[in-house]
Design a protein around this nucleic acid. Structure first.
Lengths: 261, 261
DNA sequence: AAATCAAGTTCCAAATATTGGAACAACTAT
DNA sequence: ATAGTTGTTCCAATATTTGGAACTTGATTT
């Protein structure tokens, strides 16, 4: 895995940071050298700058780990995220109705980033998924969000998508995915039929915010043994309604700014 | 508020990022110009680089907001944080025993950063505090962590601390704080007697990890009407035991690497 | 004990990106 | 129309980054 350098100096620094953060454990200089593809001298200076900024921490054995500053930056942006704030009561209502886990996600390139989650049992911790990025093509919210895009943008993203096969039900090509996206546009909701993880199903709906570039969605997720496809279909209308309500609230409360085309 | 420029180019970029992230709402170019003190041309290029990297997002009305990439970076570092992982079962056990909220925090300069939290009722969301930074001098975990430091380091941090008065019980100077830190060293635990927020008390203990530079701590927190000082004192031994257990686990499982001086 | 190897650090002239003042658009309010 | 505000672009001077190579440091082998 070789991180691609981005925008000038900052891009390189971020590529190195990402190389460390996405790695499994603490990374030694040589590990990062291989992962990042930067020359030795350059990498060394980059790393010391990242440490000085608190984005990385250097341990005693000289290896590098993510620093706490990332967590603090993310906390501030998360708690200040107005979209999440607007959506929250609707997520709760949907959770009260269904009793299952409710997710809110935003599309970023070919991935869905989970921005909020409401769940009943704390078997897996609530915060454990916030910020997680999953492929769009095999998740309910992801497919729902893709259905909001225009043809050009959709094509651009699909061209960049790698169709990794997670389960026997995962889409293997853009062709079948596009056909399903047509259905989603018609129905107004999307299913995840154990496409990303076996034994996990969900029903999702796209959130349309007039005058915004956000492609987002929300979903109700549950284990296959408890949540049948019939059950999901029965919840679909409520999921669509919640998504519509979030979109309307957001249209009012998020930058009516200068309107916009 | 004027962000101080840091390490070369990266430092400036981070200062601008922080200026946007810590602000209340979306920030327009002129707002950031004032907050950051950078020249117009420089700031403009810096902002476009941050947007290209996904650290900021530019809205239609040209204002800037935190981007999703921060959340994803933080998610990866949080879920990969081995210290947090090691501490978690101990936090749960303490929560089962007391029924009140349990926090895990790490000292970063003069602040405590909350890294994990276990609570019963979801009145306030679990994840809502992870990554939050609070002043060390007026929080239980903060004071406990400070008690681990050597005299030179302690003095350095106190010199940089601003003693903001949050409640009638907040420490107003280094003198009284130092006296309390002596007590904490003797007792092995620290109290927060409504020093940061009124009606909130806690008992905390420092986590000592031999051969690590981390100064950390854990605490049990509750509302004053339910949790008396007597109750907190009764829990103190359990809190100390949990902190000791985390430290021992961490000493074994975290880099025994090259030992240490 | 000497030699070998690996990992990390430092150095510095050349290449490159950043700097920041000033001029330039675009849009608003008067 | 006119003045004012906000955001964008330009470019020569400057500071930073670049990256190959030499240099430490510490461990392992002969």
């Amino acid at each position: 895995m070789r991180a691609e350098a981005g925008t000038g100096t900052l891009g390189k620094a971020m590529a190195v940071l990402e190389a460390v953060v996405t790695a499994d454990g603490p990374q030694r200089f040589t590990d990062i050298l291989a992962r990042s593809g930067q020359p030795r001298g350059t990498l060394h200076r980059l790393l010391s700058h990242l440490v000085e900024e608190g984005l990385l921490v250097q341990r005693r054995d000289l290896s590098y780990e993510p620093g706490l500053r990332l967590l603090t930056l993310a906390y501030r942006s998360w708690s200040a995220n107005r979209f999440r704030d607007i959506a929250e009561p609707h997520l709760r209502r949907l959770h009260d109705l269904t009793g299952e886990t409710v997710h809110l996600g935003i599309l970023r390139e070919t991935e869905i980033v989970y921005v909020d989650k409401v769940e009943s049992r704390q078997t897996v911790r609530m915060s454990s998924q916030i910020g997680k990025a999953s492929p769009a093509y095999c998740t309910g919210i992801g497919k729902a969000a893709l259905s909001l895009l225009g043809p050009a943008e959709l094509e651009r993203l699909l061209a960049r998508t790698e169709f990794h096969v997670f389960t026997p039900h995962t889409h293997r090509s853009a062709a079948t995915l596009l056909a399903e996206i047509e259905e989603i546009r018609r129905d107004g909701h999307a299913f995840d039929r154990e496409e990303h993880e076996t034994e996990i199903r969900c029903v999702a709906a796209p959130i349309l915010i007039p005058g915004s570039e956000l492609a987002a969605g929300l979903s109700v997720t549950g284990p296959a043994y408890r949540v049948t496809m019939e059950q999901l279909s029965a919840w679909a209308a409520a999921v669509r309604a919640a998504a519509r309500a979030v979109g309307e609230d957001a249209a009012i409360r998020l930058g009516p700014g200068r309107g916009g085309p």
